[in-house]
Design a protein around this nucleic acid. Structure first.
Length: 505
RNA sequence: GGUCCCGUAGCUCAAUGGUAGAGCAGUUGACUCUUAAUCAAUUGGUUGAAGGUUCGAGUCCUUCCGGGAUCACCA
């Protein structure tokens, strides 16, 4: 490909400047740089030191320029803030100022040395005595202007097209400071979850991503192949069955934070790969796990929000209170107007749903219909943190049955902001019951084929050695991050979300 | 996968079926306290792609590509 085709007109202009710098003996990408202060530290040191002389060498990216005859201003941004450069012919030398005007562009990384001072307009700035290019930007950043309104940087005409933002996240991050904040918050959430679990004697573990048998959730997997072993492998759809093997092995409290992969539709709350937290807690039941969940999210709120309140899409959500606990039966009764105890079989339930004008899936079990009722009529109403509990047995093959009610299991889901954020149960630890459930599930799935799950014989063998009673828990990190950062779309909290490949990639 | 909406300059956006434009960025010039600097001039387009209707298409139609919303799917 020729240079003409490879570069845009704007890029070719910058390429010429880069070449000119090289001709003059200035490496536009030097291997080492000097930095005495971050921009924020330089400003803080100047403010703290009264008006004492303060020499500083700062580095960063040029975000704005205002060029005059014998004077120029520029703002440089680094990871900590921004600092105005003041370049005056008298101090820098007329030739050096001209050099700056001729060869430096928005987006370039520079190293600037000088003395801190306050401009007539009152802004703490660096009176530059020496300036050096440390990384030339060939492509202009897709942003225009900064404005300071009440101390906040407002960026005008910035990159807004979601497709470009996701495909070129580097440009999005470089240009949209609020996007950087989302991912700092995400890191804070992960950090505080680990802190909380570590403080409660949990052991962080790592289990296989490539699995010979997938399980622990209902989803189609991605399939791959190991050449030497001549064996198909699946990217995990959950960690559950591996983590519970560890309880058999005597690890009482374990957790894993990692990636799950599900070969399903992509939408506002689903990405094919997503980050999950699962923990398993020996000798706890699902009620203990509910309390623990409340504590854990309260802790995260304190650490990353500094309190218990958050705002999600116009709703005020408070993590500080005990979460209301509603059985599935009561919730469906209240929000969908159906008393499911009166409809003990799939046909009668389907009939009453039809009477009420609700959509009824074909071939669904009674449990599946109840889940649909929850999804359509209950879930969207659960803005404040809420636990729904006691789920239908046939949609929960890994959960322990409710004593005295074989139709439900000890399972709960946590809801917030109108969607599901976590799923937990008193884990089934009876190997014979588990085998029966797998077989039952195998039969019902065989009818609809597609999602036929192979039975995990090794998991059953592990259970036969004896698994302590335990409570297990899973939570989508992406959705929690959506809530904490007030983002309506999961792609906004995933650095490089999955998009269809384009021809030019 | 179904339905609806969108794709115009590097970025943000205009343009009754009738000459493709503006602001910012860029380029040239002026300017020693600017901060969306200002002032003057100016470059930049296969309107996502390919067909079709029409005297004439950014605009209407078809197909395709990509994105968004929504539904379906996600025990």
């Amino acid at each position: 490909m020729s240079e003409e085709q490879q570069f845009t007109e704007l890029e070719r202009l910058r390429l010429a400047k880069l070449e000119a710098l090289r001709q003059q003996g200035n490496d536009p990408f030097p291997p080492r740089v000097e930095r005495s202060h971050t921009t924020a530290a330089a400003i803080a040191a100047f403010e703290a030191g009264g008006e004492q002389p303060l020499l500083a060498t700062i580095v960063g990216r040029i975000r704005s320029m205002r060029l005059m005859g014998k004077l120029a201003f520029a703002h440089v941004e680094d990871g900590h803030g921004r600092l105005q450069l003041f370049l005056r012919a008298d101090d820098l030398g007329a030739e050096n100022l001209q050099h700056f005007k001729d060869y430096y562009d928005l987006g370039d990384f520079v190293e600037a040395q000088g003395e801190m001072f306050r401009t007539k307009a009152g802004e703490v700035s660096l009176n530059v005595k020496a300036l050096r290019m440390i990384a030339k930007a060939l492509t202009p950043l897709p942003a225009a202007k900064d404005e300071i309104v009440d101390g906040e940087v407002v960026r005008h005409a910035t990159l807004a097209d979601p497709e470009t933002r996701y495909r070129q996240r580097y440009a999005d991050l470089a240009v949209n400071p609020q996007v950087r904040e989302v991912f700092k918050m995400r890191a804070g959430i992960l950090r505080s979850l680990r802190e909380f679990l570590d403080q409660h004697d949990f052991l962080e573990v790592e289990t296989p991503v490539l699995q010979p048998v997938y399980g622990g959730a209902a989803a189609r997997p991605f399939v791959t192949h190991h050449n030497q072993l001549k064996q198909d492998l699946y990217l995990r759809i959950s960690f559950e069955l591996y983590l519970k093997r560890l309880l058999v092995g005597g690890l009482e409290r374990v957790y894993e934070i990692g990636r799950d992969f599900r070969n399903e539709g992509v939408d506002r709350t689903h990405n094919p790969e997503f980050t999950m937290l699962e923990f398993y807690m020996a000798y706890a039941d699902y009620r203990r796990v509910m309390e623990f969940t409340e504590e854990m999210l309260r802790y995260v709120g304190r650490q990353v929000l500094g309190g218990s309140k958050l705002s999600y899409q116009g709703h005020e959500i408070d993590l500080g209170n005990a979460w209301p606990r509603i059985t599935i039966a009561d919730a469906v009764h209240e929000f969908a107007g159906i008393d499911i105890s009166k409809y003990p079989d799939v046909n009668s339930l389907a009939a009453v749903m039809k009477d009420k004008g609700y959509k009824v899936r074909v071939g669904g079990s009674r449990g599946k219909l109840i889940e649909d009722l929850v999804g359509d009529h209950v879930e969207p109403r659960l803005i404040q943190p809420t636990f729904l509990y006691d789920y239908p047995r046939e949609v929960s093959p890994l959960a322990k049955s409710q004593p005295g009610d074989p139709s439900t299991v000890e399972r709960f889901e946590g809801y917030m902001g109108g969607f599901e954020i976590c799923n937990a149960f008193s884990e089934l630890n009876d190997p014979l019951d588990q085998q029966a459930r797998f077989e039952e599930m195998g039969r019902s799935l065989k009818a609809g084929d597609e999602d036929l799950h192979p039975m995990d014989e090794d998991y059953l063998r592990a259970m036969r050695y004896g698994m302590p009673p335990n409570g297990g828990f899973g939570m989508g990190i992406d959705r929690i991050t959506m809530l904490f950062t007030d983002q309506p779309n999961i792609r906004e909290v995933i650095l490089f979300p999955h998009l269809r490949r384009r021809e030019d990639e």
